[in-house]
Every structure is written in C-alpha cells, then in structure tokens.
Design a protein around this nucleic acid. Structure first.
Lengths: 116, 116
DNA sequence: TTATCATGCAACCTGAAGGTTGCACGAGAT
DNA sequence: ATCTCGTGCAACCTTCAGGTTGCATGATAA
C-alpha cells in the first residue's frame, strides 16, 4: 500500500526538468512572469518598463521563458505580445510533487527501520 | 470574494525565490536530490557514485544545495553526511502555488472582462 | 606508527549567461 | 512620402558556473 506508483524520473526527464527550473532561477524572469500574471498579453516594450535592464535583455529572457514553455508569442501588427502559460507552472508543480512524495516515502521507511 | 489574500511577493522575495529555483535548475543537482530521497544520509563519496563528474564537482553542487536550504550537513567521523530537507521543497511549492493562483485570478478577470 | 581513505582548499580552464550598443527594417501614424 | 515606433539581428564585453587537477590534512584501519 506504500507503493504509491511514483514513476521514477528517467535520465531524460531530468534534463527537461532542469530546464524548467533554470528558467525560473533568474530574478528578472520571475518578475516578468509576475507581470504577465497581472492581466492581458503584453508587448516587449511594456514588459521592459520598470525593469532595470534593456529591451534587448528582456527579449532574451522571453526567449528563455518561451523555450521552457512558460510563455507563448502572439504577433500583433508591429508588436509581439506575450502570454503566460498556466500549464507550465502546473508541470513544474508536478515535478516538485514527485520529489516531495519520494522523500516522504523515504522518511517513512527510515522511521520504520529505526523502530525495529 | 475573488480577493484571495494573495501576498504579492516583494522585491526582496524575488531574489530568494530565484535562488531556490536556480538551485533546482541543474541536472546534476536534481539527480543528487533524487539520490538523497532514496534513503539514509549519504557521504560525498557515495553521492558521487554513478555520476559522470568528479567528487569536487559534487562537493560544489552540495554547497549550492545547502545555501538554498535543500540539504543539511552532519559531520560523522571523517565523512560528511548529507540529508534532504523536505521543508525546502515545500517552500518551492508554495512559491509556485502563489504564481499559479495569481495567474488563475488574472484569467478569471480577463474572461469576465471579455464577456461584458 | 604507518598506510589508507574521505575531504578540504586553491588554482586554473572554458563556455555560456546576462548584459550592452549600434544598425537595419517593416508596420503605422502624419 | 515621410517620420516614428516596436523589434530583430549581430558583435561584443564581463562575470560566473561547472568542471578539472594537485596537494594538504585529519580520521581510521593495519
């Protein structure tokens, strides 16, 4: 019953997962994600506002976020609008859940082992 | 009722959060965390086994994981044992939950806006 | 006491991440 | 037709992350 059917992440998964978290592991990118969470699709220009970096830097960050599937593009005239992808966050959550579950499981085993 | 009492992450938080995810954003470190989740405290030597890198590299990774609070040290004779800290994973989960909640909230607002 | 073994420390290398500046270009506004 | 504005692209710089090798050292096993 303690076999919770946790699929042990394969070697290949680990790479993908690292990419996901790496995308979140930058202050500027986190702020971009927060900004994107506050409303409608926003252009690069808009997203750059109030950030201490150049438009070019923001562009690069958006590229990173896009390859990690956290945002989607949407060309609109001469500007490019970006939208947050909720699914990506959920995917990240799933990974953490897996790790947490495995750890809890290990703790239970350890406790049982100690108690005998 | 839609005011879900989401504490908007402060500027300072963003830095800490970035550190957390950055720690997870490396394949080797993810594998270390997985390994640590499989049982008892392990030494650097043990953790290095089956990894394609040097003991020194692993040591550095462990240092990163420790500053991000994902592991704890525990000196034992001539070896140093490392243990996973479940609380850190939960903290990371909390951050993701915050972002997700905010996004969902925004989606709701957008939908309502469109429908009028 | 003498090997041996798990680590720490320091120097060093390489590539890539994050940033900037300058210029070119197509879409919109005048 | 022209001016402006939002972007893309390319070159370049600097810092640092990830990795290695070599040597020193304090526990432990012989």
């Amino acid at each position: 019953m303690s076999k919770q059917n946790l699929k042990q992440p394969s070697k290949a998964d680990t790479g993908r997962n690292a990419t996901i978290f790496a995308a979140l592991g930058d202050e500027t990118r986190l702020q971009l994600l927060l900004k994107l969470g506050t409303g409608a699709p926003q252009s690069i220009k808009q997203l750059t506002m109030n950030l201490p970096v150049t438009r070019q830097a923001v562009t690069k960050h958006l590229r990173v976020l896009e390859s990690a599937k956290f945002v989607t593009q949407e060309s609109h005239g001469r500007e490019r609008l970006f939208v947050a992808r909720l699914a990506a966050i959920e995917e990240a959550q799933a990974v953490l859940r897996t790790i947490a579950a495995q750890w809890e499981d290990a703790l239970v085993r350890l406790k049982r082992f100690v108690e005998e």
